[in-house]
Design a protein around this nucleic acid. Structure first.
Lengths: 333, 333
DNA sequence: TGTCATCCTGAAAGCGTTTTCACGGGCCTT
DNA sequence: AAGGCCCGTGAAAACGCTTTCAGGATGACA
């Protein structure tokens, strides 16, 4: 149909008005006579016109683009969540008439190409995913780029972030084990380099402390978020603490490994040892038992981040947000 | 540093050349004297200049953007793959100096906003993910948009696609069961609305036929790709065919359900019944046994699609591609 | 009835690039 | 030694839109 590209000028001509008026109609300027508005709108739908983004960007300085920047190094960890997060982002952005630019890049080294792609004028804002190294992000922020981090940056950082309540979730999980009657509660903690790893361990400690249970360092083992890591950690734990009757595992993948070790050792779950995970990664069945775990609102994380970056573009300074988690009780605790 | 945005004209001035020359240097035009090239390059890095995309787009008509359009209705199915696919796409595009625009939209109804976002001049090309309804895609293709579909469209379609070898993979899987000595081989097939569902069933039939094993309709049960669906299908199967000693399940999630039913019935895997899945969704352990399955090169799918759409933009007409799959033998068969 | 504010409209400038075109100088032909 | 070519360069137009500015018409007010 619209073979040759038609421009605003074409609309102006067929509607018998000036280009300026067409532009005003396009942008909802109220001071155009109703009669002309309809004339213009007719011409638009008749010719099947849609405005040229580049031209608009050139004059307004707004690109309508928001970058979602994902550290390609954290693939393993976030794999199952990408779909949900990106869905959340994409939908929230679309409602505000923004487009999402997807960038998967190594973020641990300072990458000039990333910076160039996000320099002022290239995008209106950016959403970064949890990273080990804040340097690039801080640089960009100093350059005036509105940005939000998903996941928690370093404590001292001035970055705006959205995060799940890792601390609260771990607290809920551990509390659940306590309420269930567990007396000797261990934990398989995650990578302490990551804030999520630290916060989930802190939540565990807090719950113990609240219930007057002393913290015992020997009941903490560290894994690397993988099932194999969970396996190893669980072996360590059960060797040094054969009497444990409950364990909070900092993510579901490690819980998978931990449970296989428990089964192998002949411990019944949850009768002998109760297990709570984190992430709700496996919505359905998992082997014979369904894992009791902490659910994060992953899609909400994306949607919230998008909403916040849009507010920043509008000149506001939104506060960082921590999204609540939810305990899902299933078979293992 | 670069507070006020600096333009090509600024570079021209500090380098003491004309804007035209700067532009030529930027675009690698060979007919600029080496001496000026260095002068310009110095000015560029000194001022920290990067060209304005919008202005460039406006004059060249190329946006440098390729849309990755994902049907929001197929979340469940593709969830764990998104990360890999998008990584593949993003990296391949970046190497060719394109940016990936992410659009998660319902694609089953014809959505004017999708069409508008992809109209000529908005993006240079698009990659669509497997869909139930080709209408929107065909429309866009007719409008001259270079596009590639990931997953296989309807047989009659003229669309260019990239797909995993569903047929070949299913054939491999079934063949493996036969080679293993299984005599009564059933299958849990997927949704026959989807090409992947049909092709995986066809591959199963082909392998049986090749080995002179008759096809028995009662040995086919249909699931909906979910673990629960796999469970139900397996129950049906085992009821009507108690003697089966091998089963090819059309995806890993259903295999999960199927295996739990087998265990529940007291059948040992793989001694009594061998199981092969499809997707290699669970890289690690899965309950007590690791699933023998067919691996697809998901990231390759994304990379290939990106490469193809770029070739189409360059005016070529690449052929559709089917990527090979690989049998991964583990515990269950 | 005269003055002023108000409203709607169009002309034109400008956003930052690329690209065509013309021009001058050097080199290679003859 | 003269003509023609090619090579490197800059001037200027063009891309499609928004927005400022000014002007004409209308209505309100005194």
């Amino acid at each position: 149909m619209n073979r040759a590209k038609i421009t605003l000028a074409d609309i102006a001509e067929t509607a018998g008005v000036s280009p300026a008026t067409v532009s005003r109609v396009l942008n909802g300027d109220p001071r155009v006579s109703p009669e002309r508005v309809t004339r213009v709108n007719e011409a638009i739908s008749e010719l099947g016109y849609s405005p040229n983004r580049a031209a608009r960007t050139l004059v307004t300085g707004k690109t309508g683009l928001i970058a979602a920047v994902i550290d390609s190094n954290l693939n393993v960890f976030s794999d199952p969540f990408w779909g949900q997060i990106t869905t959340g982002i994409s939908q929230a952005l679309q409602e505000a008439n923004f487009q999402a630019l997807l960038m998967v890049r190594p973020l641990d080294v300072e990458d000039p190409s990333v910076v160039a792609s996000l320099a002022p004028g290239q995008v209106d804002g950016a959403i970064f995913f949890q990273l080990h190294n804040d340097d690039t992000v801080n640089l960009l922020q100093d350059m005036g780029l509105p940005l939000v981090v998903v996941g928690r940056p370093e404590e001292s950082s001035k970055l705006t972030y959205v995060d799940s309540d890792n601390f609260g979730g771990a607290h809920q999980a551990t509390k659940h084990l306590i309420d269930r009657g567990c007396k000797a509660i261990a934990t398989v903690a995650g990578d302490q380099q990551l804030s999520s790893g630290r916060l989930r361990l802190d939540g565990y400690r807090k719950a113990l402390a609240e219930s007057g249970i002393g913290f015992d360092e020997s009941r903490v083992a560290y894994g690397d978020w993988t099932d194999v890591g969970g396996e190893q950690a669980m072996r360590t734990l059960i060797e040094s603490n054969p009497s444990i009757d409950g364990v909070f595992v900092a993510n579901d993948l490690m819980a998978l490994g931990a449970m296989s070790v428990l089964e192998e050792q002949g411990r019944n779950i949850p009768e002998d040892v109760a297990v709570v995970g984190f992430d709700n990664m496996f919505a359905g069945r998992l082997g014979r038992q369904q894992l009791t775990t902490i659910e994060q609102d992953v899609q909400g994380l994306g949607a919230k981040a998008a909403a916040m970056v849009i507010r920043m573009i509008d000149g506001e300074r939104p506060k960082s947000v921590v999204l609540p988690t939810r305990l899902i009780v299933r078979d293992t605790a």
